[in-house]
Design a protein around this nucleic acid. Structure first.
Lengths: 181, 181
DNA sequence: AGGTGACATGTAAGAAGTGACATGTCAATG
DNA sequence: CATTGACATGTCACTTCTTACATGTCACCT
């Protein structure tokens, strides 16, 4: 279901696109909220076309198929956005690792937490760079009178805040372990 | 793989347990980092027994099977904990919803964000209550000379921080939308 | 004695996701 | 003109996860 919604969202926000385009967008912009490879995307688009949520607008060169969201697709997306309960069924390998940190000896635990901190810091840097790019593009758009692309803005902010939180948490946890030993 | 690790972690931290016990522990203590139902747990324990990571210690009444972690299981768990790179392959429906919030009209967007804030606030309250319970138990243990159970402590702290971050993010995003309209 | 509810373990169909394999086009570079 | 690399789409086997079905025990209450 979520993959379907993500694809509808991309089509709604950026207009008609091919499976290839959408795969790229998953890698570049959607990667930190949802992941999917082309082997999942192509069959899903075919199913969505069969269900009338998207239509094949044109078949271009190199077998390229351009998908467009239909009114039914827009309705489906809108309904999901508005009615969907914000369940948070977290399934995070990192959190699982964090959970079990107390099983380790203090020095090993600190080593693990330090790698986690480095990972979160790297992620933070990457997301902040992405935001830089986006705000620059938004400024340019505004200067030229076009309305800037806000798609993904709030999620990016959330990702940055989460990463910052994770860095602080790792530092504090390391300090906590040192204090206890 | 992760389900396996989670089960090994529970057996390592709390000692021998049945599939039923482990299912309960998934619900009560591990729920905010990993989820699994009994229909996934029972077959996995059987496979782990076949792989020598756990052994069936005893078959009690009502068909109860008590599993114990083996030295091989402990080694597997330890290796995963220490070597595992902190990849964060996030796949969050909430974040996906957040991503697409800009597609909605301002009033709808605010309604969605308000529900998200309420959800995060509820989660925060729940995790804080859990921490209260745990610290009370830890104080009692310390008073009695037993060493307190730290398993899950850091992950719980991380969960609380993430929930707090999400609440703040929702509030700020709502304010941002209001400012822009 | 009968009913309820926690205890206890399974199976099985189907959806979702992963990683590898397979095929072919087109443009640019050397 | 040959090779490289981005473009472009697909399948398949396998693992993981979800939901529902299925079965039976034991303690306690009325």
């Amino acid at each position: 279901m979520s993959l379907r919604i993500a694809l509808l969202g991309l089509l709604a926000a950026s207009g008609p696109a091919s499976g290839y385009d959408l795969t790229k967008k998953f890698e570049t912009s959607l990667a930190y909220v949802w992941q999917a490879g082309h082997s999942q995307i192509y069959p899903e688009l075919a199913k969505m076309a069969a269900d009338g949520l998207v239509s094949v607008e044109a078949e271009g060169t190199r077998g390229r198929k351009t998908y467009t969201i239909t009114p039914e697709g827009e309705a489906e997306l809108h309904q999901w956005m508005v009615e969907r309960d914000p369940v948070v069924p977290l399934r995070s390998e990192s959190a699982l690792q964090a959970f079990m940190v107390p099983l380790l000896e203090p020095d090993e635990a600190i080593a693990v937490l330090e790698r986690m901190r480095a990972g979160s810091q790297a992620r933070l840097a990457q997301l902040e760079a992405l935001r830089e790019t986006k705000t620059a593009a938004a400024r340019l758009a505004e200067a030229e009178g076009r309305h800037p692309d806000a798609f993904g803005r709030y999620a990016l902010d959330l990702g940055i805040r989460h990463a910052r939180t994770a860095v602080e948490w790792a530092s504090d946890s390391i300090a906590d372990i040192r204090r206890r030993t």
